[in-house]
Structure formats: C-alpha cells, structure tokens
Amino acid sequence: MHSIVPAGRVAVMAVVNRTPNSFYEGARTFGLEAALGAARSAVDHGADWVDIGGLPFSPDTPLIGIDEEIERVVPVISGLLAEREVVVSVDTWRVDVAREAVAAGARVINDTSGLHDPAMAQLAAETGATLVICHCLGEPHTHVPRPRYADVVGEVADFLVRRRDLARSHGVRDEQIVLDPGHDLTKNTRHSLAITRDFDRFVELGHPTVAAVSRKDFLSEALDLPKAELHDASVAAASWCMALGAQVIRMHDVRAGARAARLAEVIRGSREPLGPARHNV
C-alpha cells in the first residue's frame, strides 16, 4: 500500500505558494506568517497534504537563487509541522532545495520538471521520500512556445513511464512514486482538456495520480472566466478526474475539494457515509 495515498482514498493537496507572483493571485502568501496561516487553514479545512512552493513554475517570474528558495519554503515546512500533523511536500525542481525541505520534515518531493535532474530520484531513494513525477517539456523555468503533440495523452503517458523507470533505476521504490500528467504545463487548453477527458489512461499506469486542475488556464479559456471565478469549475474538473481514478487532487479551495474527495470515496465504497442513516430506513 502507498504510504501517502492509501488505496481507494483521495488525498486533498492544498497549494501554499510563498511567492509574490503566483499564477493565481489568491495563492500568493509571501510573508512567513501569511504562508503559515494559509497552511494552518488548509489543514483545518480538510487538507491531507500541503504542497509548499517558493518559486513559480512560470518563466515569466524572476529566477531566484537556491538559498532564497530554501529560505522561502523551509521555515513554512518546519513551522507547520511543529503545529499540525499533515503530509507536507515541497514543490521544486532543485535538488538542493528538496534536500533541505526533506531534512525539515517534508515527506514528498513534487518535481514539476519531470526529473530533469536525475539526482532528484537519487535523493528520493536515499531519503525514502515520496516522489511526484510531473510531465513537462523543456528546461525548467524556460518557455516552450506553442507546444505540439501528435497524441498528447499517449505522449504524456509514455513520458511518465520513462521517467518512472528512470526513478526505479536510481532505487526509488514503486510505493514512493506518484504521477502527474501536468495540466497546463507546456500544454495549451485543448491539450489539458484531452488529458482531463482521458485521465484514466494515467491511472492505468499503476501509481497514485495527481489531478492538478485547480484554477488553471484551461478552465478559464474553456468557460471564458477569470481565475477568480473558477471555484466551481475547479471542483467539477477535479471530480471528473476522481471519477476516472485520480487519487490526489491539488486544490486552492480546500474546503470544497475536501468535500468532493470525501464524497468520491463514499461513492467508490472505500469510506462509509459520514452521517447517520436517515433516508428511507
């Protein structure tokens, strides 16, 4: 059984970005106390897992130094774990940042670069940390203009298999591996819609799979709505992915995501209804 995502359950991964320039303004919590407050609130609202990042994925943001990224994420990790019992991940593609985060108590490395640096797999093998392998083209923190795929679902699945096998070759165990097809990361809206529609293709790879759909651009374009108005769409997209087998949903709106996840578990039969039996009994 996977130590982070038990079979049949859905983990709600809350987003806490200690940055001044996140893609979604509502996720920006740059000050230490603001970031800690957001992390505490996420846990209190039902997050099973808190994902803490110090450097936005977008190359349109300044590339800060490694020491600065460590200073952004490590105090949030250690501060949260001193107060709450919760799974914490670090959202980074830099091995030195991940090493310090794991030393501070993070149990998961969320590598949005897709193991661009194989040393990240070696670190996971050495420490036993869970490793989230995300699909992404190109160099970290660089533009991939107009990405093209002949078969986006098949190509993303093949990439994840290759990187999963790379992680295995460095000693990462299967029960440490989580996969993420990378909604919107080096993909346009139609690409992200396709990987949402066929999300079960990634579930079939045999590892817990992340649906990181919350407030993403593809939802904004699909409905012609600003990110601030994507609460309902984010829950709907996450629910679609859960119906196809997603075991992790990465959400900005934790309370709504947690309710959707608990309902998905009840429908799957992996959790009993939370309330007393009253209807037609």
Rank of each mutant, 00 (worst) to 15 (best):
M1Y: 00
V5F: 09
A7P: 13
A11I: 12
V12K: 04
V12M: 06
V12T: 14
M13D: 11
A14K: 08
A14W: 01
V16R: 00
N17A: 11
R18F: 12
R18A: 04
R18W: 00
P20D: 12
P20N: 07
N21M: 09
N21R: 11
F23T: 01
E25Q: 15
G26L: 10
R28P: 06
A34L: 05
A35L: 08
A35V: 06
L36H: 07
G37T: 03
A38R: 15
R40G: 08
S41P: 00
A42V: 03
V43L: 06
D44F: 08
H45F: 11
W49I: 03
V50S: 04
I52P: 04
I52Q: 07
I52K: 10
G53N: 00
G53A: 03
L55M: 13
S58G: 11
T61S: 14
P62H: 07
L63Q: 15
L63R: 13
I64Y: 04
I66M: 08
I66P: 04
E71F: 01
V76H: 03
L80R: 03
R84I: 03
S89I: 09
D91Q: 14
R94K: 14
V95S: 10
V97F: 07
V97I: 09
A98T: 01
R99F: 02
R99L: 09
E100T: 00
A103G: 13
G105E: 05
A106N: 05
R107C: 02
S113C: 15
G114R: 07
L115W: 03
A119E: 15
A119C: 05
M120C: 02
M120K: 02
Q122Y: 00
A124W: 08
E126C: 11
E126G: 12
G128W: 09
V132M: 02
V132L: 09
V132Q: 06
C134T: 14
C134G: 11
H135D: 06
G138K: 04
E139K: 11
P140H: 14
H141E: 12
H143W: 11
R146W: 01
R146Y: 11
P147H: 04
Y149T: 07
A150R: 05
D151L: 11
D151Y: 01
V152W: 01
V153S: 08
E155H: 10
A157D: 03
D158C: 01
L160S: 09
S169G: 10
R173D: 02
Q176G: 02
I177V: 12
V178N: 05
L179H: 15
L179V: 15
D180N: 13
P181I: 05
P181K: 13
D184S: 10
D184T: 13
K187W: 06
N188P: 01
R190F: 06
S192L: 04
A194Q: 08
D200T: 02
R201H: 14
V203E: 15
E204Y: 12
L205Q: 14
G206Y: 04
S214M: 13
R215I: 07
F218H: 03
E221D: 15
E221S: 11
L223V: 09
D232E: 07
S234F: 09
S234V: 14
S239T: 14
S239M: 13
C241G: 01
M242L: 14
A243M: 15
L244N: 11
L244R: 15
G245I: 14
Q247T: 13
R250H: 08
R250K: 12
R250L: 10
D253N: 12
A256V: 08
R262F: 03
L263D: 00
L263I: 14
R268V: 00
R271C: 02
R278T: 10
R278V: 13
